[in-house]
Amino acid sequence: MRISLDHLCKSFDGVEVLRDITFNEEVSALAIIGPSGGGKSTLLHIIGGLETPTSGTMAVDGQPIDFDEASLRAYRTTLGFVFQDSGLFHHMSALENVALPLHVVHGVGAPEADDRARELLARLGLKDALAKRPAQLSGGQKQRVAIARALAARPRLLLLDEPTSALDPEFTTEVLDVVRDLAEEGTRFIIVTHEMGFARHACDHVAFLYGGRLLEYGPSERIFAHPETPELSRFLSRLLEWSM
């Protein structure tokens, strides 16, 4: 799907967080990388209709997005979100977390929503965790439930904001495997991540955000093999410093 951002800017209390982002590309598996505080989450929130830009415009598949709350809500229902801390509803079981939004927001009948939730959770390896509440799940399981919830209404785009940053390494792999499998089945996604191996091998394109600017964008192989800006070179060599 085509995402078009035109001179997009965002300030919080007068502090500019995104500066003049212009982007017009087909998105199927995009990684957003860059140092902390660079504006990655803010950009993902704007693309996802959770935050409004201070100035600039956005269009998805040629459709301009209106930034009033009612339009944004309708727009959000066509997307799926996964956050760093999962954002699961504490008082609901895994099954309810997935089925309830489907029922309430998308008007799917309760039994059908239940079936769909069961099927998705089973596919993500959570057959035994249906009745458990978030507090009874491991970090990796919670993120997989969150992914199931995001996928439930068959979104046209999945947005993941550092879905593995709060996880132990073994859970990180488990969650990234799920995202890769989904991508191979044709789910389009944008992921903010610090897992460079995943960005390089599971994503076809990478955007490098630095100090609120989109400094580089390109096919992932090119980005990692031939960084064009000194900022990206430095960022990548820092990350590689302690890798094997």
Binding site: R76, T77, F81, F83
Partner: peptide
């Protein structure tokens, strides 16, 4: 805040967020 943000993300209206997310936890 994470749950409230997630409620917005799944497309709940303010009233639905109150009814399905805030009220049950508040009561408990």
């Amino acid at each position: 805040a994470g749950q409230l943000e997630a409620a917005r993300a799944v497309g709940f209206t303010r009233a639905q967020t109150l009814r399905y997310v805030v009220a049950p936890q508040l009561v408990a």
